[in-house]
Each structure stands twice: as C-alpha cells, then as structure tokens.
Design a protein around this nucleic acid. Structure first.
Lengths: 185, 185
DNA sequence: CAAGCATATGCAACTTTTTGCATAATACAT
DNA sequence: ATGTATTATGCAAAAAGTTGCATATGCTTG
C-alpha cells in the first residue's frame, strides 16, 4: 500500500492542505500516482490518527478555511522505514489497449476516434509536463537542486508520453494500411 | 470496470481455461492489464452467471482436469457494447517513483540498488516481449494478420520499456553527478 | 520416497479504490 | 436573482483488487 507513503513523501517536501495534495496528485505527479480528493482526505484522517501528520487550521479571507497538514517526526520515520524497503512492482491497467486488442471487432472509424482521443490526452499531458519543466529550468539554483529528483520522476513522464505519441503514429499507419510491421517490409 | 471485458476480449480471440487466462494476463498482456488467478476465477464465475461465457470440462491424462471457457453470443454483444464506448482513462501508480521523488532522504547506494532492481525488471520484460515479437514474425501470414492489433498493443509495451531503460540510464548519470539536466549544461 | 514444481481450481477475509452524494464560502457572469 | 466555477471539506456505499489459504494431480529431481 503506497498512497499514505506518497502523501508523506509530498508533505515531507512541502506542507499542504488536502485540497492542494489532491491537486498535486493530479498535476505533474499524476503519471506516477493518481488518486481522488476523497481518498486523500480519508487518508489524511488515518495519518492524523496514527500521529504521522498534524494540521493547523488556517482561515482565509477570500476562500473557505483550510487545514494545512505537515509531517511529524514519527511520520518522517515511518516514511524512512518504507523507503528502505524495495518498492513493490507496479501493476498496469490500460483500458484503451483492451479496445485495440479486440480492435478487429470495431470499424476503422471507431478505432481512429479512439486513437485521436488518446493522442489529445497524451499531447495535453506532455505539453503540461514541458511547461512545468520550463518553469523549473528558469527557477533559482537552490530550487533546482531541491527539486532534482522530483524532476527526474517527471522526466520519465515526459519520455513515456513521447513514446505513447510515437506509438500512436505507428498505430495510425497500421490502421491506414500504410504499414505492416509484422511483414518483412 | 474493465477486467470482465478484458477477459471477454481474450476469450473472443481464443477460448481458454482460467489458468491459461491468468497466464496470458501475466505474459505479453501484463503491461496493459495485470491481475491474479484468483480474480480471474472469480470473474469467470460471474461471467458464467450472466451467460456471457460458458465452459466445458476437459479431462487431461497428464494434468488435472480443466474448464475451457468460450464466449457466448450474449457475451460477444456485451463486449461490442463496451467497445463502442470511449475507454476510461488509465490511472497510473508506480511505487518506485515515490521512492525516487523522496530520494534525497536515501543514500546514493540505496538509490542505486533500487534503480538496478528496476533495470533488471524492465530488461527482463523487454527481452520477453522481443522474444514473442520474433516468434510472431516467424509465424504464417494468416496468424500475423489475425494478431496484428494485439501485436500493436505489445509494440507499445516495447516502446515503453525502451523509454524506461533510457530513463534509467539518465537517472544513473544524475545520481553519479555526471549530469545535471536542470542546469544549462 | 520425499521435496519441489507446474498445472489447475477456488473460497474467504481484508484492503483499497471508485462513485455518488453533500455541504459551504466566494467570485463572476448572465 | 440565478447559474456556474473554484476553493475546500468530507461521509457512505459499492466495486474492485489483494493476500492468505486450501486442495489435488502428476512429473521430475535428489
């Protein structure tokens, strides 16, 4: 189970509210951990009970009040314990590929639609990552040093998105019968 | 929920036993859908109740008996319905990247160990995909035509694994301070 | 002949994730 | 005024996934 540790890792980096955590999980971090705000709030409750995080209520004049969570020493220790064990293997689930796998049951148009929708999704994500990357590159050296490893995780996100987009081109060529990768040429 | 449809998609392609399905889900297909044999058996029970699949018991002389499942017409229709809706977005979870994200809390040795373990994992997977690819390329034209789209899903697997391995090299250079990708050069 | 491995199936308990709903403050547009 | 969007929090039920256990056949290896 990694969600609580993902939260601890984010909080260890920078304290934040449940709402902000949920946003962080659905921005540059989303490709390696995605979740919902409901889950974040529930998990923050459990972590508070365990004494791994604490919060202070902060009233804001222009927005509803919020609870800003920070990691405790016990939480930091728990995170270290977890970090010192080998990471469990990821399990992938990609519904779109089920569709392509069974794609011979669909019309070429339907397949193209699905491929197009996916291309948009991945282009958008890649564009966002590249924006974040540019912002980081323009940041002061201190920030860059601090964010080097988090940045490296996003580098993987960028590479994977690029691989997806290249693959989508290949699929399109195959669907258009311009290419048959299983034949000699 | 996509597991039942993943099973239907596999069965629509080729009838098989629960055991074989579980194996298929953990071989070349694993990168787009992974699951456990327990889940497969449970799901096959549900699909049988719904009348989407049926099975015949087959006794084997050298192995325990097995139930060979095949998709029914109703199952085929249900699969088509599902295929005609846009595929839900995948949600990624990669525990290893949490470790790297919080990597400044770990020793360089610990990080290298984790990276090495991951490299082995991905190299092995890539090697396996390439083997399957070679076998497919050597198959009769009929088989190649039939397996073109399933093969394309594996092509993504190959591309993603390659992207991982390239990224791992980059991480290694960063850990060794041979490279700082956020600096101008 | 015992131990381990591959084949083959499955239940039960538990944990995790998702989905639907609910509330409330403020801002901004129609 | 009314609707919509953003910020901010959360409960509850249902669905999905994981883990531990259990059983049985038959083959191979020591």
């Amino acid at each position: 189970m990694s969600l609580p540790h993902a939260i601890l890792a984010l909080l260890d980096f920078e304290k934040s509210s449940g709402y902000d955590l949920a946003k962080r999980f659905n921005s540059s971090i989303s490709f390696f951990w995605s979740t919902t705000h409901q889950q974040v709030y529930r998990e923050l409750g459990k972590l508070t009970e365990k004494g791994w995080v604490e919060f202070e209520s902060v009233s804001q004049s222009e927005k509803p009040d919020k609870k800003v969570y920070h990691i405790t020493e016990a939480g930091h220790d728990a995170l270290l314990d977890w970090l010192n064990k080998p990471a469990p293997a990821a399990r992938f689930k990609e519904p779109m590929l089920i569709k392509l796998f069974a794609g011979r049951l669909l019309s070429r148009e339907a397949l193209h639609e699905e491929v197009d929708a996916h291309e948009n999704r991945h282009r958008k994500t890649l564009g966002y990552y590249r924006e974040v990357e540019q912002r980081l590159k323009a940041a002061p050296g201190e920030v860059k040093r601090r964010y080097l490893l988090p940045y490296m995780t996003m580098r993987l996100g960028i590479r994977l998105e690029e691989a997806w987009l290249e693959w989508i081109q290949e699929v399109r060529e195959v669907l258009n019968e311009q290419k048959d990768p299983l034949q000699k040429d």
